[in-house]
Nucleic acid binder design. Structure first.
Lengths: 160, 160
DNA sequence: GTGTAAAATGAGCAAAATGCGCATTTGATC
DNA sequence: GATCAAATGCGCATTTTGCTCATTTTACAC
């Protein structure tokens, strides 16, 4: 009585077309995918309301904003202060993302910095946050595999 | 004789408008920012050629593709085999991103999985890769701070 | 202050895309 | 075979785009 159709009718072709050209018009996507224009339109609308597409912010290169350094700070936190630490980290502008990992209160803090001194300052601020017990900073030296997701859009996912 | 103008004339207002509405027309962006339409147009064109905007793939939510689990695998690698390990990891579909960190051959491997069993399998495959000495998997349990970058677009960056 | 080059602006215009509505067809499920 | 949602195909008014061109503003050097 709940769902009549399959859970997630992902459209690999449509997403691939968008990856290839994020600024493609609906008509262009329709042509390249072989779908009807209205179909492309309605699906994109659905993706939008289902929040399948995350913030545009993810597309903006921090380096372009003057933050060429990227680092991950693995942070050990006093469990009871997890919430307040999260809040405090959120107030640091250079903190882009904070994820709580399995294990006893480990946080993965993604930060960016203008230069080495800047990173040093930020790392210090994180360590100085009340509730933070220990930190371990790893500076990103190179990208072995650049973020990608297209490879998950193959046949197995394609078939609805 | 080289550069006559400042390095990177970031336009905070323009990017903010795009973050607020990624599908806004150039005209809409022009109105909300107070810039002329041609200005919006030429800047976006410049951003595109300067590669200030990263792949559209980053906007696609892996959960939407049937991969609700996200994990980070910190991987210790035999230094001499760094390149081959990078290549091998790139052949694992569930590996979204691999970054080389400072320190003696540490890799941060971002993976997604369909479920716990799937993640177990993937982690095993990573550990089984020739050149990988040790791994440490952290499953993402919650998002304390969701990826953001807008806060870096304030006055200090805005001015030129 | 003066000069200069890049950036921003404003206007115009044909071509293209969009945002609908609507009727019909296809597909999957029971 | 009945049924409902998705996909399709068509039309049309409105909006946006892509592009050109001339002018103005801005930033920076001398």
């Amino acid at each position: 009585m709940t769902t009549h159709r399959k859970a997630d009718p992902i459209d690999a072709a449509l997403l691939k077309a968008l990856i290839a050209d994020p600024d493609a018009t609906n008509i262009a996507v329709a042509e390249s995918t072989g779908l009807a224009r209205n179909t492309v339109r309605s699906r994109l609308a659905r993706y939008a309301e289902e929040a399948a597409l995350r913030s545009f912010e993810r597309r903006i290169d921090p380096a372009f904003l003057g933050y060429p350094l990227s680092a991950y700070v693995v942070t050990k936190v006093t469990q009871r202060k997890l919430a307040s630490v999260g809040k405090a980290l959120g107030e640091i502008p250079e903190v882009l993302e904070v994820q709580g990992l399995s294990g006893v209160s480990d946080l993965l803090v993604h930060v960016v910095a203008r230069d080495a001194d800047d990173l040093y300052r930020i790392a210090g601020r994180i360590l100085g946050t009340d509730g933070v017990k220990r930190t371990n900073t790893g500076l990103v030296m190179r990208e072995l595999v650049t973020y990608r997701i297209a490879q998950l859009l193959t046949a197995d996912d394609a078939k609805n």
